[in-house]
Design a binder for these strands. Structure first.
Lengths: 169, 169
DNA sequence: AAGATGGGACAGCCATATTGACGTATCTTG
DNA sequence: CAAGATACGTCAATATGGCTGTCCCATCTT
């Protein structure tokens, strides 16, 4: 079938008018790559009766300890109510604790407990195994390209947030 | 905070023992890149009262017309019941049609209607805009690396399926 | 004729997200 | 100091997209 969104452009066309197959390849690899990577941690989460939403919170709290709730809300881009449930679950299991902000006492700063740190590390190991294998198979140059393309997918208004995450490592 | 899953390895260590920051960067870019890309199509879907699950089905049916249901189930890796609901919605809206398989008449071969073709193309345009911008900003070499790393994330047992998708473009 | 396979359908459940409204503590500013 | 903005919590209702288990029918295979 000739997929109708195909655009016939000569090779000299603007680089913004990519041939359809290059775009479809990216869409599909992103879909399969992302879903398969997340599956790597499902088992560990299920042992604690948790889901992927809990892992996302755990991950970013591990990444930026003393993260205020408002910052986590921006990162995850979900509603306060949705996050509230997730944080309640994590607190009940003793994986996350909060304390009042020192400069602004309305804030609650999130932090992993020692158990939370250990659990997040265990989940992270699964992610590392998957990504390390892919990185090694692709080579360092490819890894750089991988990062560059993904950075281009992040809208300008979110980019500062992602950069802030990565600057202290 | 010293995230405890960090492993201290000298630069000469095995490439499988990547430094933590390289792995975290990949995890985060994949998360933000994937979620932001999928957001590009939400508006178009909402206009028809559809969600992302519907788009995934539409996408792969567009990609491989006359796809049997069993093949779509393998691609999406969801249950027959979950897919059934999605396909019912798409049929009710006149976007997808089925016909009996010629070699095996138990099979139902899925295909987009002309309206479905047009709608999928419209959604695909949003994806193309996002990806084309990212590709152009990163450059062709980076795109190749992007593909290579993502391919490495797909488990061996799924790789044939993805390759099959991409060989006829 | 028996069994395997492709697909459909019913019932019920769970996880994760949403919106809207309201409450409380704390900070900021006129 | 009073007024308003902000950070967070919470209640209620709803939607989406998954899941399991079970049973059914048509068709293909042996």
């Amino acid at each position: 079938m000739a997929v109708p969104s195909s655009i016939s452009v000569p090779p000299t066309a603007s680089p913004l008018f990519l041939r359809e197959n290059e775009v479809r390849r990216g869409v599909e690899l992103l879909f399969f790559g992302y879903t398969r990577l997340t599956r790597a941690i499902d088992e560990g989460l299920a042992e604690h009766g948790l889901g992927r939403a809990h892992h996302r919170a755990l991950y970013f709290i591990a990444r930026q300890p003393d993260l205020p709730i408002s910052a986590l809300l921006k990162i995850l881009a979900i509603t306060k109510q949705s996050l509230g449930r997730v944080l309640t679950d994590l607190s009940d299991r003793g994986l996350v604790e909060t304390r009042a902000g020192d400069v602004d006492r309305r804030q609650k700063l999130l932090r992993l407990t020692p158990e939370g740190i250990q659990f997040e590390a265990q989940l992270f190991d699964a992610l590392r195994n998957s990504l390390a294998t892919a990185y090694a198979a692709a080579g360092q140059e490819s890894v750089t390209g991988f990062w560059r393309v993904l950075e281009g997918l992040i809208p300008a208004e979110d980019k500062a947030m992602v950069v802030a995450l990565q600057k202290d490592i």
